[in-house]
Design a protein around this nucleic acid. Structure first.
Length: 199
DNA sequence: ATGAAGATCAGA
DNA sequence: CTGATCTTCATC
């Protein structure tokens, strides 16, 4: 297995984000492997929708650190979201929004099925930023994790995209810069978090 | 010290 | 469509 190189993330998130589609997120301790099918780029001072837009704060500190590490934030009072720090100490990040579970489905199901009535189907297991972190058991404690190291609790494998197409569309759930096509997804995948708007 | 908004999700 | 739930940051 080939781990994704740190140089992959050491550039503008707008460049790296589309290429992150198809890579694999690993959680070895649970035997979980999932293919990334949807991401969004956030571009620091260039991007009014980014948490890092107004500079470094205690919360956004890791986004101004070395690329390839995890920026994990808590939102809406109940959800964690996983980002890969990118760029060069300039607040860039890539939000990982959805993935297709490949291995460890049962481990993911048990994390996602928390006493609710409905149990999620396979398409829904890692669909959406909050669901993805829940399925992987990722929380704020994982902030700063090195995604480019096989020794980390979780990391990213540099898998080829193969015979697939990546499409761009506007990002989800933001107000500022709502039109910028910085959301990237695997064309035709049923594992994406929500429908891609028609052009 | 205070409050508004938030890169969301599930259930009615 | 709405309620849940709580941190962060800007402003007072």
């Amino acid at each position: 297995m080939r781990i994704i190189p740190r140089s992959f993330f050491a550039r503008d998130s707008r460049e790296a984000a589309p290429e992150l589609i198809g890579k694999r997120l690993h959680l070895p301790s649970e035997g979980i492997i999932a293919r990334i099918v949807e991401v969004e780029a956030y571009r620091g001072a260039e991007d009014p929708a980014a948490h890092s837009y107004r500079g470094e704060t205690p919360r956004t500190r890791v986004m101004f650190g070395p690329p390839g590490h995890a920026y994990v934030y808590f939102n809406y009072g109940m959800h964690w979201a996983l980002n890969a720090v990118s760029g060069s100490h300039n607040g860039h990040g890539i939000l990982i929004r959805a993935a297709e579970p490949l291995e460890g489905l049962d481990a993911i199901r048990s994390r996602r099925h928390t006493g609710q009535k409905k149990l999620p189907n396979d398409f829904e297991l890692l669909r959406g930023p909050g669901n993805l972190t829940k399925g992987f058991g990722i929380t704020g404690d994982d902030g700063g994790t090195d995604l480019c190291s096989i020794d980390s609790r979780f990391f990213i494998e540099d898998a080829p995209l193969g015979n697939h197409v990546v499409i761009a569309s506007p990002r989800v759930g933001i107000r500022e810069a709502a039109d910028a096509p910085l959301r990237f997804s695997l064309k035709g995948s049923r594992y994406v978090s929500r429908p891609i708007p028609k052009e």
